[in-house]
Write a protein that binds this DNA or RNA. Structure first.
Length: 252
DNA sequence: AAGAGCCCCAACCGCCTAGCC
DNA sequence: AGGCTAGGCGGTTGGGGCTCT
């Protein structure tokens, strides 16, 4: 499951954490806090880099960290927040008490790969319907490229789902992703949306939103009133539409 | 039963940003 | 203003466990 422990050139331990190391780190942080991660391992007597300690603490040892089994509310909320924030896992995690960005990221990746695989209609749609981002030449060329590179149907459906994701073009390209480059393509995407017609695209977003979250979750109105709910949120409705039925079935 | 392939997730890596000098 | 450092973030990888054949 995890990498086998080993020591790097500088003598720092890497790979899986032992229970003893966990205890040492937990006890030290509970007693002294974590003012300086870089010097923490030295004072705590752990042969790890500070970064590794921070990660272990935030993702595993920190009190209140929930593990496994996502509730339907959490799944729904992750979907919703991903529409707003894209792959900003830390921002999504901030709205999900007890969940870490790393865990949500893993959950999203594995869950959506699985769902995309289970939903053959999405790959069918990719063939039969023009890509909704077609107005963007850059994205279109990338789609073609990706389609050629990846053979299996599975990949096509995954790509289609992820293309609908806010950051998808850049995320899937070989270039590094950035918000600004996404925002740069906003105008083309928006123009596509404005030109489109049909019930689906005019359906209110609320249709897909459950309003019965506990108070500690982000409230629906908070999401809807968010100024960042712009072009890509509506673009992501495609993703939502494809995945939600399967998602719900799996949960039920 | 056993080998192959896939899934899942902890951990790592590289980059970016904020803060300090 | 520019360089340095530490912390944080998102993407990727490694490998044990699970499922399939």
């Amino acid at each position: 499951m995890v990498r086998a422990p080993f020591y790097d050139k500088s003598g720092l331990k890497k790979g899986a954490w032992s229970p003893e190391e966990d205890d040492t780190l937990r006890v030290y942080i509970e007693e002294h806090g974590h003012v300086n991660w870089r010097s923490l391992p030295k004072f705590a007597g752990i042969s790890r880099c500070g970064k590794s300690c921070r990660l272990r603490w935030t993702n595993y040892l920190r009190p209140g960290v929930k593990r496994g089994n996502y509730t339907q509310q959490e799944d729904d909320l992750i979907l919703k927040l991903h529409q707003e924030f894209g792959n900003k896992w830390s921002m999504i995690a901030a709205k999900l008490p007890g969940r870490t960005d790393n865990e949500i990221k893993n959950h999203w990746n594995t869950r959506f790969k699985k769902l995309a695989k289970q939903n053959p209609t999405s790959s069918q749609l990719a063939k039969e319907q023009p890509c909704k981002h077609e107005s963007s030449p850059t994205v279109t060329s990338q789609n073609t490229e990706l389609g050629a590179q990846s053979g299996p149907k599975f990949d096509a459906s995954v790509h289609q789902i992820l293309e609908s994701s806010p950051l998808s073009p850049e995320t899937f390209s070989s270039d590094s992703s950035s918000l600004s480059s996404n925002q740069a393509s906003a105008s083309t995407t928006t123009s596509w949306f404005n030109e489109s017609s049909g019930d689906f695209w005019t359906e209110p977003y609320q249709l897909y939103v459950q309003s019965n979250y506990p108070d500690n979750y982000m409230r629906e109105e908070e999401v809807l009133s968010s100024p960042s709910l712009t072009f890509y949120d509506m673009g992501d409705m495609d993703l939502f539409n494809q995945v939600m039925p399967t998602w719900q079935e799996n949960i039920d």
